[in-house]
Simulated scan of single mutants.
Amino acid sequence: MAAHPLLSIRPATTDDVPLIRQLIAELAEYERLADAAVATDDGLRAQLFGAQPAAEVLIGEVDGEAAGFALFFHNFSTFLGKRGLYLEDLFVRPAFRGSGLGRHLMASLARIAVRRDCGRFEWSVLDWNLPAIRFYRTLGAVGMDEWTVQRLEGDALHALASHDAL
Rank of each mutant, 00 (worst) to 15 (best):
D89I: 03
A156V: 00
R97H: 00
T13G: 05
G100C: 05
A46N: 13
A141R: 07
D164I: 00
S77I: 05
L109E: 12
F76V: 02
D63F: 13
P131E: 00
R134Y: 00
Y86I: 01
H4N: 15
A165K: 02
L19P: 11
G50Y: 06
S99E: 07
H104W: 12
L44S: 04
V114L: 13
A156M: 03
A67V: 06
R32D: 15
A25E: 15
A159C: 01
S77M: 00
L160R: 08
S99D: 03
A55F: 05
E153M: 01
L130Q: 14
G102D: 13
Q22D: 13
A39H: 09
L139Y: 04
L109C: 06
D35L: 15
A34E: 12
F121H: 10
L109V: 07
H104G: 09
A3M: 10
A2S: 15
L7N: 14
K82M: 02
L160D: 01
R137S: 15
I59A: 01
A12F: 03
M1I: 02
A51W: 03
D42E: 12
L139S: 05
A95P: 05
D164P: 12
L101P: 09
D117G: 03
R103A: 09
D63K: 09
R45P: 11
P18R: 11
